[in-house]
Amino acid sequence: MQLMNIINALSLEVLQLQGDFNVEVRGGYTSDMLSDVLAHSREKNIWITFQTHQNVVAVAKLKDLAAVIFVNNRTPDEDTLKRAREENVILLRTADSAFGISGKLYGLIMPKD
């Protein structure tokens, strides 16, 4: 499913507009530990996290992630937004918890058996 369709379906708030909203999302990964995300996330995954600092942008860029969703309405600081604009990393926000939004995203994009 294309990222923009996921954003619409899950009513995610878009925090900055630089990046590829047409990207075909291939799953997601939920974690707050950066080394864990580096090791186990896959290209074009959506990363769901509580962390909002600049290093999140670096990890998302290095792993070619489709976007990052901040949970519990967590707000990144201006430096994080600036770096995301520079690096074309799409940042999204939800009022849901990590559990809640992970479940919704899973239901939306993972194949049913």
């Binding site: 950066l34 080394s35 864990d36 996290t49």
Partner: peptide, 8 residues
């Protein structure tokens, strides 16, 4: 900040 998993 999410560092210190001892995975690096």
């Amino acid at each position: 900040m999410g560092f210190g998993a001892g995975m690096g």
